[in-house]
């Protein structure tokens, strides 16, 4: 049913720390690796070894440069489905293939009902849905539904593949509907925000902003001014004289 649940028991999602992400694309790779054998398998690749390579991916890392006053900084920006609270990708679906789970808020596609009209991908401003031209159906991030509830995995591994693999700890998984959960506290403390709030889809995933850059030496515990080396040392004075010739 493409009408949305009035409320979900949990709001499972990701918190992505833009201050920490180093843009290594490990989350992109592990996402592809897990999901091409997972719930929405396969993540079809077309012409994978030739020119014009194309394929389905659920997670992408963009790299931006943003001006900060006279300065600027590089921000690596991972982006996958945000599992919105009011996702139009679900309500526009004419067949009931797209749905939002009432128990945990995860947005999924039932491939057996999808007619491949692509309207859901038009409705998503975040580019979360990618069409599999080979299978003729729409595919998307499942928040690794086949990992997070998978009792065959060790408990520590019951997180999405992108979170499990991040070597920098830039991705966090949890219940954003519970204000006391570690992810909710992180959002609270760091001023986590929504992407494109003006569209009004209320994304569940949150982004943590880069921390202000420390530009003064004192901020990292170094002395404010460095003393010139070698004052009073005769050998160094001689070397200085010699080299200054």
């Amino acid at each position: 049913m493409t009408t949305l649940p009035a409320a979900t028991q949990k709001k499972l999602g990701l918190v992505i720390d833009l201050d920490i992400c180093v843009g290594c694309h490990a989350c992109v790779t592990n996402c592809k690796e897990w999901n091409t054998g997972g719930h929405m398998a396969p993540l079809t690749d077309l012409k994978p070894y030739g020119a014009g390579v194309d394929g389905v991916w659920f997670n992408r890392v963009h790299t931006f440069e943003v001006s900060v006053g006279d300065d600027c900084r590089t921000v690596h920006f991972p982006k996958s489905c945000l599992h919105c609270e009011t996702p139009a990708c679900v309500t526009v679906c004419p067949t009931g293939a797209s749905y939002k789970r009432s128990e945990d808020g995860i947005v999924l596609v039932d491939e057996s009902k999808c007619i491949g009209c692509k309207l859901c991908s038009w409705a998503c401003p975040y580019g979360a849905r990618e069409f599999d031209t080979d299978a003729g159906v729409m595919k998307k991030c499942t928040l690794c539904i086949d990992r997070i509830y998978n009792e065959n995995l060790d408990e520590v591994d019951r997180v999405p593949a992108c979170v499990a693999t991040c070597p920098a700890g830039a991705r966090h998984f949890g219940d954003l509907g519970d204000p006391t959960s570690p992810v909710s506290r992180l959002v609270q403390e760091r001023g986590g925000y929504d992407l494109m709030p003006e569209i009004g889809y209320k994304p569940t995933n949150k982004y943590l902003p880069p921390r202000p850059r420390r530009t003064r030496s004192q901020q990292i515990g170094a002395p404010e001014v460095l003393e010139p080396a070698g004052n009073g040392d005769r050998l160094l004075q001689w070397v200085d004289k010699l080299l200054s010739r």
Partner: peptide
């Protein structure tokens, strides 16, 4: 608004 980076110009 797409990136939430609001301190200045955002360039890919």
């Amino acid at each position: 608004t797409a990136t939430g980076l609001r301190t200045g110009r955002v360039r890919l």
